[in-house]
């Protein structure tokens, strides 16, 4: 009779978890839950400032957002979620070339998103600087840093750090995948990086709506 220790992990009752998930997955979900609370703290603060403001965007100081660009960024991130989930699907099937290809495309999606965010920040900083210079000239007073700008940088910056970490994390997994580290029976890291990446996508979906699309309370 074959001993339990000699059996592959997927046929070994001793290695099967009655909770139906690995401790790695539970740890990742717990991390995501705590991270979600961090984001909620920032979003809650943003809501207090925004609801309490009579006129959120001050024309003389705050540049307008480029909605088409950020909509495209949203689409890129959603698309990268699909490539990520396809990479996981390839991992489940043991398709090693598929894992490398789809993880690579996910990394490309993340890098495009970050590149566009750098472009947006650069554009925003310069536009705000130009407005501040005009304000200073006409009012003979230093232009204040508005809540509109502060919350924009805090929220998109915190999310951008997550995307950057996600790209680095994905790159590490991609490198290991190129070395053939993941098989149909052992691909938990691919699933865990996928959970993180989808979470980053989910948070951006919320941020895109509340930051860019919500109307100004007064202007409508």
């Amino acid at each position: 009779m074959e001993s339990a220790a000699a059996l592959p992990a997927n046929q070994n009752p001793a290695k099967q978890n009655p909770l139906r998930f690995t401790f790695g997955k539970l740890a990742m979900w717990l991390f995501l839950a705590s991270d979600a609370m961090g984001f909620m703290g920032l979003i809650g603060g943003y809501m207090v400032l925004r609801i309490g403001s009579d006129n959120w965007m001050i024309d003389a100081l705050d540049p307008a957002f480029g909605i088409p660009l950020t909509a495209f960024m949203t689409f890129v991130l959603i698309l990268s979620s699909v490539t990520m989930v396809t990479a996981h699907s390839a991992a489940v099937k043991g398709d090693q070339k598929g894992i490398v290809r789809w993880l690579g495309l996910t990394i490309v999606g993340g890098v495009i998103f970050l590149g566009l965010q750098v472009y947006e920040w650069n554009h925003f900083i310069h536009a705000a600087g130009d407005l501040a210079a005009v304000f200073q000239k006409t009012n003979d007073a230093k232009a204040p840093f508005t809540h509109y700008q502060a919350t924009f940088f805090a929220l998109t910056g915190f999310h951008g750090i997550h995307v950057t970490i996600g790209v680095i994390y994905l790159s590490c997994i991609w490198r290991r995948a190129k070395q053939g580290a993941y098989t149909a029976a052992n691909h938990s890291p691919v699933e865990l990086v996928g959970l993180y990446w989808h979470f980053v996508d989910l948070v951006w979906i919320v941020l895109f709506t509340i930051l860019y699309l919500f109307p100004d309370p007064v202007k409508g």
């Binding site: 909770l19 699907s89 099937k93 691909h187």
Partner: peptide, 25 residues
């Protein structure tokens, strides 16, 4: 339901059916 892999503590199912990822996209 996607296949729950051995790394999740399950034996893989014979048939693999992914959720409709592209429809959701």
């Amino acid at each position: 339901a996607p296949v729950v892999s051995a790394s999740d503590g399950h034996a893989p199912e014979q048939e693999h059916h992914d959720p409709p990822y592209y429809k959701i996209l």
